[in-house]
Design a protein around this nucleic acid. Sequence first.
DNA 1: GGATGATATGTTATAATATAACGTCCGGTA
DNA 2: TACCGGACGTTATATTATAACATATCATCC
Lengths: 160, 160
Amino acid sequence: MSFPVPHHDHGACVRAAMAAAEEQCRRRGARLTDIRRRVLELVWGSHQPVGAYALLDALAKGGWSAAPPTVYRALEFLQAHGLVHRIALFNAFIGCARPGHHHAGQFLLCSGCGSAVELEDAKVDDAIIAAAARNGFSVTRQTIEIEGVCATCRAKGQEQ
Amino acid sequence: MSFPVPHHDHGACVRAAMAAAEEQCRRRGARLTDIRRRVLELVWGSHQPVGAYALLDALAKGGWSAAPPTVYRALEFLQAHGLVHRIALFNAFIGCARPGHHHAGQFLLCSGCGSAVELEDAKVDDAIIAAAARNGFSVTRQTIEIEGVCATCRAKGQEQ
DNA sequence: GGATGATATGTTATAATATAACGTCCGGTA
DNA sequence: TACCGGACGTTATATTATAACATATCATCC
């Protein structure tokens, strides 16, 4: 929801995300299988979007024999249940901290540290729906990817 | 700026776009070469985003011998000068009707007819910059791709 | 427990998108 | 004319994603 500080307790992020995912799948009767769980953990390896083939490599290092479809299927499942999002600009995937919660798919992407942060901004949402309506357009899905520099990276850049 | 009606005079769209491009390049001292001009015309073949390889095929049919780098270089040039935009969701390219004009890169993408329309909505822009600022984030580029259904397609869908 | 159908995964091959690397040409300029 | 830099040609390859089909696993019913 806001930018991760550089040395936060990331294990807590992962545990919270995994718990939320388990809960979400239980409620929906969806099967969070071993592979899907492992891919989700790997996506949560950082707060940066991860490519499908990086996930594939990571799986392989963990001793899983996996081909591209394995990863893409897991990602498809995770996306369908709102557990990960795809960042179109990077062809990469990022974990969703609030599955189930209404989320429009708004991301801030820091070019300094590569972090992606999901936004849930009603005003942005409203402005987009209003602008669309003014053009007679009804919205089904938004992809909002905002590139820029986060506070931490800006501070680092200036101190040099 | 608003959705193209189904049987408009598309030739006029193309001529206007090409004239704007020539003007823009002249002002900037940029060389709109034969290939670049041809690729731009092909991008303007419709109001739908076109893939690089579709452009490549079209070039080939016009008797140009072209390999992928030819098209990607032309597209790179055209993007650099604001003459085309890339739609990240579709890995495809669309002509810009207002090069030079301030444009944030906001698109409405109709799932019915495949048309893409560029928006220049200050309120959306403001909402995004404000939301980013609230997170300590300074924006350098926006990618806003709104999927949905345009008025024409919605009307068609309902009459069935 | 065994049969059955649906879902999930394994495996191979290939499609679709994009870029690296290097050579050549061409237009302007000293 | 010699040179320089940008544009283009060409070959090869990287990266991302999916098709197609076989096999395995799970839940349920009998």
